[in-house]
Structure formats: structure tokens, C-alpha cells
Write a protein that binds this DNA or RNA. Sequence first.
DNA 1: ATGCCGATGTCCT
DNA 2: GGACATCGGCATC
Length: 192
Amino acid sequence: MVTIARELIGKVLVTHFSGSLTAGRIVETEAYAGITDRASHAWNNRRTARTEVMFGPPGHAYVYLCYGIHHLFNVVTSRAEIPHAVLIRAIEPVAGIAQMVQRTRKTAEDPSLTRGPGNLSVAMGIKTLHSGQSLLSAGLFIAREKKRLPAGEIMVGPRIGVDYAGADAQLPYRFYLRNNAYVSGVNTTRQK
DNA sequence: ATGCCGATGTCCT
DNA sequence: GGACATCGGCATC
């Protein structure tokens, strides 16, 4: 699932809800390693109505509510009973920017539009009701990007906001594009 | 540039 | 009752 987190960088996430098409290139992801990963909702084989989607087949969306406010979008990456997932943390808008601005109630486009998992879900119209939906469906899918990424552009580091996970917080499970304005977290607020 | 805070669903103790 | 895969605003250095 770590491999998949890296491979998702540069691919294009597309939503097409109620006639509104929005798309963005994935620029930041994090891998969550299921029952052995303290940072995962599925740690220690925790199964609830919410996490059950992760125990299902791959290629489906796992969307959950964080802090009661933010809808965070994940891709289930392994076969049934293996609850691995990849959190999509940031995208770079490709299509439907006017729609994204409208959904986020901003007045103009700026990098905060799709920077961070909570923000990108608002911009893309992704909600918890999409949890369990196949990523092969017409309204929600991930497309291959035509052009290859230049070598050396993908950076690796520890995940954001998982300090409580002990040693697992140090795992190099976060991937992001170098010098991309839409990447969230520390070291990214500068760079203009 | 850094830090605190509030909003608040779901799950755990 | 508390913790949590967040964010933006406001206060303070």
C-alpha cells in the first residue's frame, strides 16, 4: 500500500456529481497500514460500521468525518480483510475550478482551495455518503495522467498529525510533489 | 512566524 | 468524558 501511495502521485482524481465535473492532479498522499499501524482506524483489527469499508475489496472510497467537520477521502488498496488505505491529502485543480471556488465559498482561486484533505473534499464535493463507492463509477474515479513525472520530484517523509501513534508516526508513509504550492503541512506555507 | 482555539461525529474507556 | 488522519482566524512574539 506504500507503493500505491507513491503511484497515486500525479494521477487525476475526478468527480462528476449532479452534472458538475471537477478534477485535480494528486500531489500528496499518505499510506495507512491497517491493523499493524497505530495511526490507522483499523489498528488492532478495529471493525466498526465506519471502518468496514476498509475491510472490503480494493478500489473503493473510504470517506470519514474527522473532528466532526472534515470529510477525508481515502482509497482502499488491498484485498478484502486487509484494511489498507491511502489518504489523499492534496490535489492541484485541473478542471471545474469555478465549481470548486463555489463549493468552498471562496471568492477566487488560491492554493488553499485544494490543499489539505478537508479542503480538497469540499472542493471536489466528496462527502461521507460516498464512502464505499467504487472508484470505477462514473461519478468518482481516478484517471491515469498522460505525461510521466520527472524523476526526483516525489518526496517522502513522516505523516502529518499522527504523533499519538508512537513509533509508527515516524514511518516514511507520506508522499508529495516537491515545490508544489498545493501540498499541505509544514515546509509548505513558505515558498510564496 | 508561531501558537491557541473552537467546531463537533464516531469510537473508546 | 476524551481522543482523533483538520482548518482558519486571531493573538502574540
